[in-house]
Computed example of a mutant assay.
Amino acid sequence: MARTFPPDLVQTQRAWTRTYEALARTPFRTVLRRRLQQLSCRIAIHSYWDAGTGRSAAARTELRRQARTEESQERRTA
């Protein structure tokens, strides 16, 4: 079942994914690690999770999947 996530939550997850990929390429970048922690906190405390519709591992997995899908679609069109 596809969920509808708020656009700002998806954008934050997309930023998290890009930061994680950049950190994987250059693992000793403290700035990227801090950015990843900040984005992780924003995702974790987003008001969407308070609504009771999320909170499951499946919901977080679906968020990551949707963010990756959007990211790959944007790369194809660019």
Score class of each variant (00 low, 15 high):
residue 38 Q to P: 01
residue 10 V to E: 09
residue 53 T to F: 05
residue 13 Q to T: 11
residue 34 R to F: 04
residue 71 E to S: 12
residue 72 S to E: 12
residue 65 R to K: 08
residue 27 P to M: 04
residue 78 A to C: 14
residue 42 R to G: 02
residue 53 T to W: 01
residue 60 R to E: 09
residue 49 W to K: 01
residue 21 E to M: 00
residue 39 L to P: 04
residue 15 A to V: 08
residue 25 R to P: 00
residue 20 Y to T: 10
residue 26 T to K: 11
residue 1 M to G: 06
residue 49 W to P: 00
residue 46 H to L: 02
residue 63 L to G: 03
residue 8 D to K: 12
residue 63 L to H: 02
residue 39 L to I: 03
residue 31 V to W: 00
residue 70 E to L: 13
residue 78 A to H: 15
residue 7 P to G: 05
residue 13 Q to N: 07
residue 18 R to I: 09
residue 71 E to D: 10
residue 50 D to T: 15
residue 20 Y to H: 11
residue 36 L to I: 13
residue 50 D to F: 11
residue 53 T to G: 01
residue 4 T to E: 10
residue 57 A to Y: 10
residue 10 V to H: 07
residue 75 R to P: 00
residue 41 C to G: 05
residue 72 S to V: 14
residue 31 V to E: 10
residue 64 R to N: 03
residue 28 F to P: 01
residue 5 F to D: 01
residue 8 D to V: 12
residue 69 T to E: 14
residue 37 Q to C: 05
residue 17 T to G: 00
residue 61 T to K: 08
residue 72 S to I: 14
residue 32 L to Q: 11
residue 62 E to S: 09
residue 14 R to P: 05
residue 43 I to Y: 02
residue 12 T to S: 07
residue 58 A to H: 09
residue 69 T to G: 06
residue 46 H to G: 02
residue 74 E to S: 10
residue 50 D to H: 15
residue 64 R to M: 05
residue 26 T to R: 11
residue 8 D to Y: 06
residue 4 T to W: 03
residue 34 R to I: 02
residue 19 T to D: 02
residue 40 S to Q: 15
residue 7 P to V: 13
residue 37 Q to E: 13
residue 21 E to W: 00
residue 19 T to Q: 02
residue 14 R to T: 12
residue 45 I to Q: 06
residue 23 L to V: 08
residue 42 R to D: 06
residue 62 E to G: 04
residue 8 D to Q: 12
residue 32 L to H: 10
residue 42 R to W: 00
residue 40 S to L: 06
residue 18 R to K: 07
residue 64 R to T: 09
residue 59 A to W: 03
residue 65 R to E: 06
residue 64 R to A: 07
residue 58 A to G: 09
residue 33 R to T: 13
residue 23 L to E: 08
residue 37 Q to D: 11
residue 12 T to P: 00
residue 16 W to P: 00
residue 28 F to W: 13
residue 16 W to K: 08
residue 20 Y to V: 12
residue 66 Q to G: 08
residue 14 R to N: 09
residue 45 I to D: 04
residue 28 F to A: 11
residue 10 V to P: 06
residue 1 M to D: 02
residue 38 Q to D: 14
residue 74 E to I: 08
residue 11 Q to T: 07
residue 8 D to A: 12
residue 74 E to D: 12
residue 2 A to H: 06
residue 22 A to H: 05
residue 25 R to G: 04
residue 78 A to Q: 15
residue 68 R to G: 10
residue 53 T to S: 06
residue 32 L to N: 07
residue 10 V to W: 07
residue 53 T to H: 06
residue 37 Q to S: 10
residue 26 T to W: 08
residue 12 T to L: 06
residue 15 A to Q: 13
residue 11 Q to G: 01
residue 5 F to V: 07
residue 16 W to Y: 14
residue 38 Q to E: 13
residue 68 R to A: 09
residue 23 L to Y: 09
residue 72 S to L: 13
residue 3 R to S: 08
residue 50 D to E: 15
residue 77 T to M: 14
residue 54 G to C: 01
residue 49 W to A: 03
residue 22 A to E: 14
residue 58 A to S: 13
residue 54 G to D: 00
residue 29 R to P: 04
residue 28 F to K: 11
residue 22 A to F: 03
residue 73 Q to M: 12
residue 59 A to K: 03
residue 73 Q to W: 11
residue 63 L to P: 04
residue 34 R to E: 07
residue 2 A to Y: 01
residue 44 A to W: 00
residue 1 M to E: 01
residue 70 E to Q: 13
residue 38 Q to G: 04
residue 14 R to M: 14
residue 57 A to D: 14
residue 70 E to T: 10
residue 24 A to P: 01
residue 60 R to C: 06
residue 49 W to M: 01
residue 50 D to I: 09
